[in-house]
Amino acid sequence: MVSFSAVAKRYPGGEEALREVSFSIAAGELAFVTGRSGAGKSTLLKLIPAIERPSAGSVLVNGQNVGALKRTAIPYLRRNLGLVFQDQKLLYDRSVYENVMLPLAFSDHGPREAARRARAALDKVGLLGREKANPIQLSGGEQQRLAIARAVVNRPSLLVADEPTANLDAESAARILEIFVAFNQVGVTVLIATHDQSLVERYGERVLRLADGRLASGATPA
């Protein structure tokens, strides 16, 4: 599903965010990427939807070398991924429903199917009934669940989440992770970056630990 091979990422300023990172995530797997702030977690996740391009090595997603993709092909790659961003990237001038509908605007689904999928996604994250609300009216946990609903509305086979539990209380964080686990249980591959070691340990899933841009452990499944 996802394969990193000797991946390095150096930003234009010269900062090296990732060095010689190699690992594979199989289809249907749930894995965490952990490490301190600045360890390279976000950079690693950004390489998967080609938000960033690797400076060296290759990143394969569903067999596609995303580092070599043409600019015009990137949107089609991203449509098959579910992305949950660290800052959620919700639109606060739109309703909850309109936020979830956004990825469906450029999909091939008709209006009825799009509406059905949007309601189903909101139902899965427990936000059905809040369609008309503005995201600003939601709690931090609810906003994060809305971000997940938007990520899964196109039914992606791979879900990538960057610090989805950051700034959440323990109870909300646990609920968010339960949602990811639920998606994984129906076959969705899930890759979550978090710095919360205790949360990771509670689930006992595979952990890729990054330290100073290098993969310190977890390169192969336990």
Binding site: P75, R78, L83, K89, L91, L102, F106, R150
Partner: peptide, 16 residues
Amino acid sequence: REEIEVSRLIGATDAF
């Protein structure tokens, strides 16, 4: 700008 940025991140083409 925000909507454009988010749309790009989740798979909108330049034409869209």
